[in-house]
Each structure stands twice: as structure tokens, then as C-alpha cells.
Nucleic acid binder design. Structure first.
Length: 790
DNA sequence: GCATACGGAGTACCA
DNA sequence: ACTGGTACTCCGTATGCG
């Protein structure tokens, strides 16, 4: 019979003598189904040395390895663009490809074995064009549910599924949860601290809270939570931090009570798998924390901040800091607040999931990485898999990831800004500069010509400065990848124009074009990543060399056209806006450099200091665009950022600093009188390694150590929020984690001298007001309070 | 013995 | 755990002065 299904997840199922691939899906009637593939044959390639005779090598393979090898076949492939003869070796046991390949590498005539490092599930998806989060049709036979998996029906696949062109997503059952663990000794540890509260929000509208008993025993809670998931039977479980914390914690707690956390669709427990994601058989586990890198505007990546940024949940509703959880739990008056926070957290998780899972599904489809780990995988690995798919299509063998030394190279060119205020400045941007350079000059690992090789018949492109050459023909691997991505995005955006943005279809297309854009823009970076399967250093080097040449040439063309260049960075030029001249310049650039430039923002007025990568512009609509300055940095106190932003607004709008100076005075006065909330004084910094590994006693590290002393676990990647308190000694001995600090112990002078005034003076210096001037006047003047100022 | 200068460590930004 | 270019603070020691 034929079965139409949408692919939710795939996992290998290995028993002693059987190897199956389990494809979890939803059929066109909305039933949850399991399709079992028993005909998967794993293989790898044996690449031969130049003169080697494939038949001789095959004979040797069959003599020594007949036990493991099911089949051999001589095939023609390419490797880094060059034709190679290879032997496709199919293994009897799919779990042993890497092992057999390792042995065969030792044979005479064999230069290498390739693709033995591609996991069975990925091999299957890529070879058959089966797509995670996509619809398929397959010939199947229903079979008894001997494994007692919790689905509507089990089917064996009689042929590999064929992808269908249907962008729709079936109605999924989604469950979000958030947990609270009880500890007086810092970070909760599963061997000693119970989970006292779990809140859930489900796509059917149900909300639940599972609560530990009077003695804080969590046995019943865990049992009920597990049973509830089984009963609701979600397709997708959403959480925040589940990969790093929640699942192992809950599993550990369950085991402590001799319970199993076996809610999945096959009776297994959650387990950590590739890229560090937690896999739940038959269900997609999505950790929305994995999306946080997509939003650099959110500096402190808590669930509440993240949700607020996305407009999810009740804005400004109370947050209970980790440090206070135990206190709230113990206090009957405060516990309801913690309970509300927990439920609100589950709602936030659910809401964030609703907004972002569309994107993840599209990224899964593009890369073939299943939904449960496509967002856990780093950008480089997503590009890797996208390219593996393309390689399979064009017969290019997939290189292994090699351990090799990294040597950095020269990147983009940054022009020095002309300090001060400028009126009417246009930003000229090269559209997708690196992708287009790579397409135009056919820069790719398979078109690179080694320095000792002659130019090929079709000729070559030679990169400026570095001199690397690339074949003009045929089109390289990257050119094909990029052209396809750019075209598909164009088509998607075209289709979107005809749709109402409120429709589901529009939303899906928008998610897809975003995924395509992100992948496109990552390919240049990937090319320069030493871990890339197709890493060839000159590829990235040549692209950036062309980039520098292009921006420099464009800058010269602008000046020749009589357009002053006030700044430029990598792929942008800031020039005086004279419409006729700029239009002409655009055309000249296209002719001269073969690349499109577009006019981006046209600022009414813009302000530069002497520093590169830092400026503030006044847009046509009167809003401010601040770039690089303290205003948009996460490691300055809010009070300093606000002061600088307002100073910028005044000087950009009024073109004089007079009011800015009195404004600074008023804030300093408020600060000295402690009229500002403690929150505005927190400085957040990230730990980039374990605290004990630091060479110097940096303030945030000292603050982290104070938290560690109280049992809070902090490590690489964690943000530390601290304030500076009054007292004796060096700054790094006067820091306090913000959760322990009170407003009246703050070192006000530090905030005036090292936060507010430097941020203000950075701008005001160009109006001949130095920090010293500000210091003097703030001390002398009887200043107005902030409220009077407004 | 103390203030200041300066290089290195550390972080976060722009493209 | 995709790239390089850049600004900036703070630490900690070297340096200079008295």
C-alpha cells in the first residue's frame, strides 16, 4: 500500500544481528506512524592511487575482508573537482563502516577511504532525498507492532520514500515545560536536590503544574510528569536549557526513585547524542536556548529576556532569580509568586517555540539535519551537511574532517572615518559581497589551481594581492551552492509578494527564505574554517582579497565622481548623498567591478569619532542608529548607555552639546543621590573559560568566584552580572554579584568616573568637552535632578 | 615608596 | 564548534621620580 507521511524524526535501531532505520512520521490523516527501513546498506569509498588497478584491490579486499564486505563496485567520482576512480564498498554491518575503512586504508594501491564517517541516518536521508520536516510517499506494508511502540501503525518500507512538493506542516502536538529545582547550596544537583515544580503548556490549551509533596519529595511529581507526557503524546517537546540541564536532571531524579523517564514513543529514555542534543525516540526535543545566537540584541540570554525581545508572554512580569528560588519555595507567602513565574516560564517557552520552530523546520529541510538537532549543530556543521547533500548530487566525494594547523589570513578593509558631524550621508552597500565575489570569480575548493600548476584551457581568475588562481570553468562547487541558494531565495521572496503576510503559507516561506539567507552568508566563513570538510585556505583568502580590492576601487570611483567618502567597512561606503551622482556611481561600479551596490540608509546626519566601527546616525524618520558604541554593548552599565544615547540624540538633533552637558550633570546628580535602580548599575560580562583558568584577576571573574564559593556553578559561556561597591582596595576586590548587592553599598564614584562620564565624554570630546571638564562641573554645580530635567 | 606608563588579557562589537 | 578587524577597560608589572 501507499502511505503519505511527514517526517518527524529518524533514528537507527541496532540489535545484535539486525540494523533498522526507524522513520517517525505523521500520515496524511494525522496519525502517528513508524516506518521501518530494513534494506539500508551502508557503504564507503576506497579511493585509489593513480596507477592502481581497481580489480587487484577488489581482489585483495575480498580475500581478506569477505566477512564484512557485501559488495564492491568500481565507480568514477570527483574529489576536489578532480576525477578519481574509487571502489564503492558496501558493508554487511552498517555499524562497522568506519572500522572496515580503517583496515582498507592500509592496502596497497589505496590512497584513502572516504565517507565512512557519514552516519547511517544521514546517509539514508541524503542518498534518497528524504527530507526531515517534509512530506513523502512510500510503498509500505503494515506489520504487527511487536516492539510496542506508541503509534497508530507500524509499516515496513518496501521502497525508499519519495519526497513530495508540499510545504505544509501537519498539525503538531506540542508540549512546553519549565522546571524548578530546590537547593540551598547553590546550583541544584540531581543527587541531592529535588525537582519541586514542573509547569507545562500544551498545544491543546492545557496548562499543568506538577508539585513536589510536603516533604519536597519529587517521586510523585516525576511519575505524574512522565505519565502526563505519555498521555498527551506530543510530537514536539519544547524547553529552555533541556540539552544542557533539564533532561539529564530529570532522568537522574527519576532513577533515584527507581522510576524510568520512559515517556517517548518506544519505551526508551532521553539520551544525549550528536552535537550535544538530547534525543527522545519518536518525539522531537527542541531546546529553544539553541536559537539564542540568532538574536545578538539580547545580551543576557535568559528565557525572560529572550521572550520579551520576541514579544512573547507577559512583559515585565516577575522573574525569580535562581539565587532566590529556595527562599521563595520555603516561604508560604512567596511561593505563589514562584509558582506564577514557573508557569509563565513554560508559557514563554511555548511562545518562543511557536515563533521559531518554523525556521528550524526549514533549516532541517535545507540541510537534512533532523529537527531535534539542526539548531544544536553549529553553523559550520549545517553548512557542512548542506554541502554534503550537494556533493552527493554531483558525484563529488566528501572529504574527511582533518586535524590541521590554523593560520589566519587578512580579512576585510576598514576605512578611517572622518570624525565629527556630517549631513546627508548615504550608505552604499555591496549586496551579499562575499557570496557574489565567490560566484563571479568561481572561487571554490574544486576550482583552485595549485601554484605549480599551469593555467587550464578555459583560463583562470587571479586574486589581487594574494595571487591565487581559480579555473574559470566549469562552475565550482561553491558557485553552484551559492547560485542555487540565491536563486531559491529570490523565488521565495517573489512568491511571498503575492501572499498576505498573515497567512500560514507566507510564514512558512518567510522562515524558509531566512534559513536560505543564513546559510548563504555562512559559506564564506565556512570556507575559512579550519574544521570545514572542504577547507582550502586560499579560498577564503582570495575572497577577502577581492573584497578589499573592490571596496578600495569603489571608494576611488566615488571620489572621482566628487562624492566624499566619510567611512567604509568591508562592503560598505559612507558617502555624501547627491542623488544624481550616486545613481551614476552605482552604474559605474557595476561596469567596473561586476557587482551590484544598493543604497542603504541615507542618514540626515551622522557622527563619527576617530574610532572605526563606531558611529551614530540620525535616520530620516528621526530615530537613532547607534553602531559599536557603548549604547549597544552588553558590558556597560545601563545608566552609562542611557546617558550616551541621550547625548548622541541631542548632538545629532540639535547640533550643539549645550543641553547634553546639563543632562549629564542631572544624571550624575541622581547617581550620587542613589536615585537610580540597582538594575541600571549591573555590568554583565561573559566567562570565556572556567574561572580558575584566568591569568589575571578580572572583575567579572572575581564576582564569579564569589558565586562559586556559595555553590553556584559557573563556567565557560555563562554571563556574570556584578556591581562595584564602596570600600578599600583594587576594583577587582570591590565587585559583588548583583544578586547579593544593595543600592546603598554601591561605589557611586566608580559609576560616575568609569561608566557615565567616559561614555558621555566619548561623544562630547568632539565638542571640546573632556571628561575632566565634566568631572569639574558635576562636582561644583548644584544640579537639577533628573525629574526636573524632563 | 609611590604614581604613572604600557603591554597583555579579556570582551564585545562590525562587517 | 563560520571569518578577520577593531576599540576599549582593567590588570599587573615595569619604570621613573623623589
Amino acid at each position: 500500500m501507499k502511505l503519505v507521511f511527514w517526517l518527524l524524526d529518524i533514528n537507527p535501531k541496532v540489535d545484535e544481528d539486525t540494523f533498522e532505520l526507524w522513520l517517525w512520521g505523521i500520515d496524511s490523516e494525522g496519525n502517528r506512524v513508524l516506518l521501518v527501513e530494513r534494506n539500508f546498506a551502508a557503504y564507503f569509498y576506497v579511493v585509489l592511487h593513480g596507477g592502481a588497478n581497481p580489480d587487484v584491490v577488489i581482489q585483495e579486499i575480498m580475500e581478506s575482508y569477505a566477512v564484512e564486505v557485501a559488495k564492491t563496485e568500481v565507480v568514477s567520482r570527483r574529489f576536489f573537482g578532480k576525477p578519481v576512480t574509487a571502489i564503492k564498498v558496501t558493508c554487511k554491518n552498517p555499524t562497522k563502516t568506519a572500522q572496515v575503512a580503517k583496515e582498507l586504508r592500509k592496502l596497497n594501491g589505496v590512497s584513502d577511504c572516504l565517507e565512512d564517517d557519514i552516519r547511517a541516518a544521514m546517509r539514508y536521508l541524503i542518498d534518497n532525498g528524504v527530507v526531515p520536516c517534509g512530506w513523502h510517499e512510500a510503498e509500505v506494508a503494515e506489520e504487527p507492532n511487536t516492539q510496542k511502540v506508541r503509534v497508530y501503525g507500524v509499516f515496513s518500507l518496501l521502497s525508499s520514500p519519495k519526497p513530495l512538493d508540499n510545504p505544509n506542516v501537519p498539525r503538531l502536538r506540542t508540549l512546553a515545560f519549565s522546571m524548578v529545582c530546590y537547593s540551598h547550596e547553590g546550583t541544584p544537583k540531581p543527587d541531592r536536590n529535588p525537582t519541586v515544580l514542573i509547569s507545562t503548556v500544551a498545544s491543546n490549551g492545557e496548562e499543568h503544574q506538577f508539585v513536589a509533596d510536603k516533604n519536597n519529595n519529587d517521586k510523585q511529581l516525576l511519575n505524574d510528569f512522565n505519565a502526563y507526557i505519555k498521555k498527551f503524546d506530543p510530537d514536539v517537546i519544547v524547553n529552555y536549557g533541556g540539552n544542557a540541564t533539564d533532561w539529564t536532571y530529570l532522568k537522574s531524579r527519576s532513577h533515584k526513585h527507581n522510576l524510568k523517564l520512559d515517556f517517548d514513543r518506544a519505551g526508551f529514555e532521553p539520551h544525549t547524542s550528536v552535537y550535544g542534543h538530547v534525543s527522545v525516540t519518536g518525539i522531537v526535543n527542541v531546546d529553544v536556548a539553541d536559537f539564542s545566537d540568532m538574536f545578538p540584541e539580547v545580551k543576557v540570554k535568559t528565557l525572560a529576556n529572550f521572550a520579551e525581545h520576541l514579544g512573547v508572554g507577559a512583559a515585565g512580569s516577575g522573574v525569580v532569580e535562581d539565587v532566590l528560588v529556595a527562599e521563595y519555595w520555603d516561604n508560604p507567602k512567596k511561593r505563589p509568586e514562584l509558582e506564577r513565574f514557573s508557569l509563565e516560564s513554560a508559557r514563554r517557552v511555548y511562545g518562543v517555540g511557536e515563533l521559531l520552530v518554523d525556521f528550524a523546520m526549514q533549516m532541517a529541510g535545507l540541510t537534512s539535519l533532523p529537527l531535534d538537532h539542526v539548531m544544536t549543530a553549529a553553523t559550520g556543521f549545517r553548512v557542512d551537511w548542506y554541502l554534503v547533500k550537494l556533493a552527493q548530487k554531483i558525484g563529488e566525494l566528501v572529504p574527511r574532517r582533518l586535524e590541521q594547523q590554523y593560520i589566519s589570513y587578512t580579512g576585510g578593509l576598514v576605512l578611517s572615518p572622518k570624525p565629527g558631524l556630517h549631513d546627508n550621508i548615504a550608505v552604499l552597500d555591496f549586496k551579499s559581497m562575499y557570496p557574489n565575489i565567490m560566484i563571479t570569480y568561481n572561487i571554490s575548493p574544486d576550482t583552485y589551481i595549485e601554484p605549480d600548476q599551469p593555467d587550464p584551457e578555459g583560463g583562470s581568475y587571479k586574486a589581487p594581492e594574494v595571487g591565487y588562481r581559480f579555473r574559470k570553468t566549469p562552475p565550482g562547487f561553491y558557485k553552484e551552492a551559492l547560485t542555487y541558494l540565491i536563486n531559491i531565495r529570490g523565488e521565495l521572496r517573489q512568491k511571498m509578494l503575492a501572499l498576505n503576510p498573515k497567512t500560514v503559507e507566507y510564514r512558512i516561506l518567510d522562515a524558509r527564505q531566512k534559513a536560505v539567507k543564513i546559510l548563504t552568508n555562512a559559506i564564506y566563513g565556512y570556507a575559512g574554517w579550519v574544521g570545514a570538510r572542504w577547507y582550502i585556505k586560499p579560498v577564503a583568502e582570495a575572497a577577502s582579497a577581492w573584497g578589499r580590492h573592490i571596496i578600495l576601487t569603489a571608494s576611488q570611483l566615488a571620489q572621482q565622481a566628487g562624492l566624499g567618502v566619510v567611512y567604509g567597512d568591508t562592503d560598505s561606503l559612507f558617502i555624501n548623498y547627491d542623488k544624481a551622482k550616486v545613481d551614476q556611481l552605482q552604474k559605474d561600479i557595476k561596469v567596473e567591478l561586476k557587482l551590484d551596490v544598493e543604497i542603504g540608509e541615507v542618514y540626515k546626519r551622522i557622527f563619527f569619532t576617530e574610532a572605526k566601527k563606531r558611529y551614530a546616525g540620525l535616520r530620516q524618520d528621526g530615530t537613532l542608529d547607534v553602531v559599536g558604541l557603548e549604547v549597544i554593548r552588553g558590558d556597560w552599565a545601563e545608566v552609562a548607555k542611557q546617558v550616551q544615547e541621550h547625548v548622541l540624540e541631542i548632538i545629532l538633533k540639535e547640533q550643539t552639546h549645550k543641553n547634553a552637558v546639563s543632562y549629564v550633570h542631572s544624571v550624575v546628580s541622581d547617581l550620587r543621590h542613589r536615585k537610580l535602580p540597582l538594575d541600571s548599575l549591573i555590568i554583565w560580562k561573559t566567562l570565556t573559560k572556567p574561572p580558575e583558568q584566568y591569568a589575571v584577576r578580572a572583575p567579572h571573574v572575581e564576582a564569579a568566584k564569589l558565586l562559586l564559593e556559595k555553590g553556584w556553578r559557573l563556567g565557560s559561556g555563562d554571563k556574570v552580572g556584578y556591581v562595584v561597591v564602596a570600600g578599600k582596595g583594587a576594583l577587582n576586590r570591590r565587585v559583588k554579584p548583583h544578586v547579593f548587592a544593595k543600592l546603598d553599598e554601591i561605589d557611586v564614584d566608580y559609576y560616575v568616573t568609569n561608566q557615565v562620564l567616559p561614555a558621555a565624554a566619548r561623544i562630547l570630546e568632539f565638542f571640546n568637552v573632556t571628561q575632566k571638564d565634566l568631572e569639574k562641573t558635576t562636582k561644583e554645580e548644584k544640579t537639577k535632578s533628573l525629574s526636573e530635567y524632563f
